[in-house]
Simulated assay, not measured.
Amino acid sequence: MTDAPDAGAPAPAPRPRRARGLRELLGSIVLGFELIVVFLGALVLFGLKALPPAVALGGGAALVLLMIVAIGTLRWPVGVVLGWLVQLTVVAAGFLVPAFFIVGAIFTAMWTYCMIAAARIDRNKPAAPAENGTENP
């Protein structure tokens, strides 16, 4: 006797995906790109010996870890706060390496715009069809 499921049995319906707000989507995109830039920046700082290895790699790893946690928690307000903390930290890294002032300014501007615009769009967006029982044309 085999443990294979019955070939004629219908497959279980896939679980519906959780609706993600625009703030969560845009925030994760900005933090994801920033994560790549910070990771590569930490490697460059280590390779050029611009900072001690513990500061370059340890600080870079800590910041990357903070970004990963922020991306994972963006559905709650604490994720947005962690995102702001990431922006503040990247700008503050400019005191160690001035180039990070530019990187921090660019990503902070993108983060600010995404958080403000996405919150406004999410607030003005009509309810989804499943929530109010009607269909949007």
Rank of each mutant, 00 (worst) to 15 (best):
G41N: 08
I68P: 00
V81M: 04
G27L: 03
P16Q: 08
P77S: 04
L82Q: 05
A62S: 14
V37Q: 06
A13C: 00
L31C: 12
Y113W: 13
A127R: 12
F101T: 06
R17F: 12
E135I: 00
V55I: 15
G133D: 11
L65D: 01
L26T: 14
K125W: 07
T134V: 10
W84I: 01
G133R: 08
F33M: 11
G133H: 08
F33S: 07
A13Q: 12
G104D: 04
R75T: 11
T108H: 01
V69F: 13
A19P: 11
A61T: 13
P14Y: 06
N124V: 02
G58N: 07
G104H: 05
V64F: 09
T73V: 01
A70F: 05
E34N: 14
T2D: 15
L51S: 04
V97Q: 12
A9R: 14
D6S: 13
E131R: 13
G27P: 11
L25E: 09
A56L: 06
V90T: 12
G133V: 08
V38C: 10
A99N: 02
A56C: 10
V91C: 09
I68D: 00
F100R: 00
R123E: 15
N132R: 12
V80D: 03
D6I: 01
R75V: 05
M1F: 11
Q87L: 03
M67L: 08
T2W: 08
L31S: 12
L57R: 03
N136W: 09
A9K: 13
K49Y: 01
L43R: 08
L35H: 00
Q87R: 06
V55K: 05
A127T: 07
I71E: 03
W111G: 10
T108W: 07
A56M: 07
L63G: 04
W111M: 10
A118W: 04
L85E: 00
R17W: 05
R15T: 15
P10R: 14
L48W: 03
G60W: 05
A93T: 08
P12R: 02
A109L: 15
A62T: 07
V55P: 02
I121D: 01
M67R: 02
N132D: 15
L22N: 12
G133E: 11
T134M: 13
V44L: 14
P129W: 02
I121W: 01
Y113G: 12
C114H: 05
G60S: 07
V80Y: 00
P14M: 08
P98H: 06
M67K: 01
A54Y: 05
L85M: 14
A54E: 14
L63V: 04
G58R: 06
G58S: 10
R120T: 12
S28P: 03
V81H: 03
A7N: 03
A13W: 00
P53M: 08
F46H: 15
V44H: 09
A4T: 13
F39H: 02
E34T: 13
L25F: 06
F33V: 08
G94S: 10
I106C: 04
D3N: 15
A54N: 11
T134K: 13
L66F: 12
A118L: 04
P5W: 02
L63W: 01
L43Q: 13
R120K: 14
P98Y: 05
I68C: 10
L74R: 01
G94A: 09
D6W: 07
P14T: 11
A117F: 07
A42P: 09
R17Q: 13
